[in-house]
Nucleic acid binder design. Structure first.
Lengths: 347, 347
DNA sequence: ATGAAAGCGCTAACAG
DNA sequence: CTGTTAGCGCTTTCAT
């Protein structure tokens, strides 16, 4: 492993000069010619900065802690992690992920992350809920992902449920459906509210009436199938907007039992939480994916902007890597998530 | 953040003594009475070792790199990560996870991990395949997870497909099924071979004949439904062992169209890859879960044993935390995965 | 049995 | 503009 000392020796300058150059702090402080000689030897030697040594000095590790409650039991987490990792990676940060399912004590995991010097934390829930942020986190920069702070002080990135439902419903309208049902969720979730509103807005915007008879809120298991069944026989919808793919499955089963084929006799749009339908049922089912990647991406970006204490749109993007969502504040409208700046945010 | 210096000051000893004690290297070198005074102040001050500073000296970070190819697109990864995290955490290690889907360049991620000082790597694929280990990894300790090294030199932890299929089929036999079909996978995967053998062995062990007519290997999409349909009408099986839940879904759809109810008229056991069925269809469907958690757990354990250069069964387990798979070599038989020691392993 | 001192690779004052 | 110096928190000889 090449060190600055080595570069200094080979270039015939001091380590401090090398340090300055390697950290792009050489403008007006190091003669350009020397600077470029330093860069050249660094390149030749394949120099990689030693983040450990640096953090020991600076008390900043460029490590982000990602705390999730359910990496093992849902596929959602993966997308978020990936989004966060992408943003982090582009800005020179690293992500350490811990999960608190599987019997891991949350506080212990937070301690471990702190020991390893995390500069800030992403606190992720796997579906938008009012959330208490662990007090251990409050002395660090934190951004919530797919969750809402109970006290309204921590910034969060959440799905735009209204837009998701609006677009899905509009899709069914354009596909020619006459009677569009909403198979919702009976648990009180933040998502449900926005979805219903979006569904309603899309209908009314198309000059249709909102009809309570085709709206059903089913719980997550067994008896749900009966409710969907009733809906089928009583209302004969030809389009279904489903809260998630478990509900989409009820629709499939009911259709099959009635000799109806999805994609021909009826249309279904489901919000895709698991990937099984996406893999199996295309092109019968249109799935809407929750913007997990984007949420992770923007949350990490926001977190870094807090850590480095500069505004979102001031963040300098390395030009080196592949195309990804551009970084301009605010989050582009067509991406279905929103950044909620909260009271605690300096600017 | 309390430092050793502070503890030394308050206890009236030197830092070296504190270091000795905090690293449990004090046996016979520090007077027991002093040692316990040191431990006491450390406890009072809530001392936590600074891993950065330590690694700067020792060139060992107790960081494990977990490289996955698909955290975002499958839910498998989560379980593995969690298992690896559990084992790591119990042995005082930390896991840094990177994924190479989502356009991340694998080599770049490996470089980043190396910069952060990873002591070794877990290289995970999301279904058992013959795999080339990136050459960048070969100068570090590596364990493959759910993958098999093409050159047969890297140790790996893989699912025991035979056992999985054997148990699933036996389950159907005990449930009273007379004619048990195997809905397999037509892609050449390592899993398929073991599953078919396990299915066959279970049948023969129960004194039944293996009957090719109820064995079907369907590809992953569309036309598959027709093959299952044919199987239904031509052979009338009353039990189905499905390669995964996409295939289980075909069986469900066919059953529904024939007015048959799963859990009453026919029985289905599917290997659960996604969670949707587990969440939705209980108790109609019996799912067998792949031992993702266990694979991650054992792989991390093995990796640490390699890093610290001691045998698996020599690993000291902290007694502090919740019950988890016990650590004795070999891996207990009822856990459906196997550790393959390979040529490169010292012992 | 304990402490003093050097040094891991880097950054940041401060001199020059 | 560039180099010298000190020190981040820890481990590790080497004296005592």
């Amino acid at each position: 492993m090449t060190t600055m000392k080595e570069i200094a020796r080979q270039t015939g300058v001091s380590v401090s000069t090398v340090s300055l150059v390697m950290n792009h702090r050489d403008a007006g402080r190091v003669k350009p010619e020397i600077a470029s000689r330093v860069r050249e030897t660094a390149r030749q030697l394949g120099y990689q900065i030693n983040p450990m040594a640096r953090s020991l000095r600076t008390n900043s590790t460029r490590i982000l802690g990602f705390i999730s409650d359910a990496v093992a039991t849902t596929p959602y987490a993966g997308g978020m992690i990936l989004g966060a990792q992408s943003a982090a990676s582009r800005l020179g940060y690293m992500l350490i992920t811990v999960s608190t399912d599987g019997g891991m004590k949350e506080d212990d995991e937070i301690d471990a992350l702190k020991r390893y010097g995390a500069d800030g934390f992403l606190y992720a829930k796997m579906s938008n809920r009012i959330t208490d942020v662990p007090s251990k986190l409050l002395d660090y920069p934190v951004v919530l992902t797919d969750a809402t702070d109970r006290n309204g002080v921590i910034p969060s990135v959440e799905p735009n449920e209204f837009l998701i439902a609006y677009d899905a419903t509009t899709h069914l309208i354009k596909a020619g459906c006459e009677r569009i049902a909403y198979v919702g969720c009976s648990e009180t979730m933040i998502a449900q509210e926005g979805r219903l509103a979006g569904y309603r807005a899309a209908l009314e915007n198309a000059g249709r009436d909102f009809d309570e008879r085709v709206v059903t809120n089913v719980p997550n298991n067994g008896p749900a199938l009966r409710e969907v069944s009733t809906l089928f026989d009583a209302e004969h919808p030809d389009g279904f907007f489903c809260f998630n793919d478990a509900r989409a499955w009820y629709v499939y089963e009911c259709a099959a039992r009635r000799g109806l084929t999805v994609g021909k006799d009826i249309s279904v749009v489901g919000v895709d939480n698991h990937r099984v339908f996406a893999e199996t049922l295309e092109p019968q089912l249109t799935t809407v994916e929750l913007p997990h990647f984007e949420m992770g991406y923007w949350a990490a970006t926001k977190l870094i902007s807090m850590i480095e204490n500069r505004p979102m749109n001031d963040i300098e993007w390395p030009k080196t890597t592949a195309p990804l969502p551009p970084i301009d504040a605010p989050i582009p409208a067509k991406i279905h998530c929103t950044l909620l700046e909260k009271g605690s945010v300096a600017r």
